[in-house]
């Protein structure tokens, strides 16, 4: 008969094993990172559009988010929220602050200064930031699971 300590060790090993399985499963292809980057870039770029088109663009962005969630569920059989508890919040919250700043700057240049070209340039920059942020988030998520 095994001791409580041995059983506890086995239980923790089983937990570690499934966390590693989840880490291995959670591979994100470049297209997934690009999809996230495209959505945030589009959001930052929306002030560059004239008024009626802006709402259409926002509706398309919301539809894209829904499609990405569906894609994740189909591809992985799990859905992982970007704002999940854990070390990934070290990426999520700074990204949120940065993207909010980019959006407000885009809004200022398009709506106040009437320079939509700047908004489009900010959208391109946002795409790069969004892509790298998504890659970093993924890296931290996998590392967190492997360290559990």
């Amino acid at each position: 008969m095994s001791t409580p300590k041995e059983e506890a060790l086995l239980a923790l090993a089983a937990k570690g094993e499934v966390e590693q399985n989840l880490a291995n499963l959670s591979f994100c292809p470049p297209s997934r990172h690009a999809a996230f980057a495209a959505v945030v870039a589009a959001l930052v770029g929306t002030p560059a559009f004239p008024q009626p088109l802006r709402f259409t663009a926002l509706a398309l962005i919301i539809a894209s988010v829904y499609l990405i969630v569906r894609w994740d569920k189909r591809r992985l059989g799990v859905f992982i929220r970007g704002d999940r508890r854990g070390k990934t919040r070290m990426v999520t919250f700074p990204m949120l602050v940065l993207l909010s700043g980019l959006y407000l700057t885009s809004y200022y240049f398009s709506i106040v200064r009437k320079e939509p070209g700047i908004s489009l340039a900010l959208a391109a920059l946002t795409f790069i930031i969004g892509y790298l942020g998504s890659v970093l988030w993924q890296h931290i998520f996998v590392r967190e699971l492997n360290a559990c």
Binding site: E19, L25, K73, L76, V78, F79, I80, R84, G86
Partner: peptide
Amino acid sequence: AVLVQVEQAEFAR
């Protein structure tokens, strides 16, 4: 252990 890391997981997964 899986569920505390994800929002949702499918039965088959």
